[in-house]
């Protein structure tokens, strides 16, 4: 079943075509990676889907409903964790509820359960400044999870982490995704990351921002570090790299 659909969605800033008319359908429960260099319109596309930007043309549909320029229908996470320093880990996880209604005892219990399940149970009463970058991103992701949105938009969430931590976080994300069955749209400029995580790799290109390829990812799950050296991985990586490189030439 299609959860998210873009129909000829376009966005222009002044003379710059940030996103030329783009159509896309994302199946519920899938993990789709969007890879491309900076300026290819991937973040613009995200902000249009999230409702922060209104498209100049076309429609954004979530579960068949037109949501152009409205918010409240996605979970959303950026490279910046955006944890607020004045709230504890537990209170950061429940932030969405606090901003839209009342944080109930059940919400708090859920936050604690999620944190315990994913290894942050001992840090519930800590302020975010006490946490490492990887831990902060995990808290940010938990905050996104408890919004109970089926569609999660992740914009380079691990971009600021060191390679070791990033690999751990990627495996952790796959585990959470498997546990919760959400639909993930994952932006990255790291080709390895896009292939390692996804069911499907969408390649975008700048000037004007557009989709240039849409690959099904044949790699079996679960994925491990060994996945990174499988022939199918290398094969897909080669295709994506050629597309990205052609643009540079």
């Amino acid at each position: 079943m299609t959860l998210l659909e873009l129909r000829d969605v376009a966005k222009t800033f002044g003379d710059t075509i940030a996103l030329s008319p783009t159509s896309l359908a994302i199946a519920e429960g899938s993990f789709v990676a969007i890879v491309g260099p900076s300026g290819c319109g991937k973040s613009t596309m995200f902000n249009v889907i999230a409702g922060l930007l209104t498209p100049d043309g076309g429609d954004v549909l979530v579960k068949g409903e037109r949501v152009n320029g409205t918010t409240g229908h996605v979970g959303y996470m950026l490279q910046k964790d955006l944890l607020v320093p004045w709230r504890t880990v537990e209170d950061n996880i429940t932030m969405a509820k606090r901003l839209t209604g009342r944080v109930s005892a059940a919400d708090r219990e859920e936050a604690r359960a999620v944190a315990r399940q994913y290894g942050l149970g001992d840090f519930l009463r800590h302020y975010p400044t006490a946490l490492s970058g990887g831990m902060r991103q995990r808290v940010a992701f938990m905050r996104t999870l408890v919004t109970h949105q089926t569609l999660l938009l992740l914009d380079e969430p691990f971009g600021a982490l060191d390679a070791q931590t990033r690999l751990e976080m990627q495996q952790w994300l796959l585990q959470v995704w498997r546990d919760t069955g959400r639909t993930v749209l994952f932006i990255t400029h790291d080709v390895d990351e896009s292939i390692f995580l996804s069911d499907r790799v969408i390649v975008m290109s700048p000037r004007p921002g557009r989709v240039v390829a849409d690959f099904a990812n044949p790699l079996p799950r679960p994925r491990t570090v060994d996945t990174l050296i499988e022939p199918a991985f290398i094969d897909l990586k080669t295709k994506v790299m050629r597309l990205l490189h052609r643009e540079d030439a």
Partner: peptide
Amino acid sequence: VDKDLLNLARVYGASRWRTFIHIEIPA
């Protein structure tokens, strides 16, 4: 106040008042 943080509140569907009380004032 961090614009991305304000955008995050918008994405959640937060009202301006709640964003003010829970984000802008403590920030």
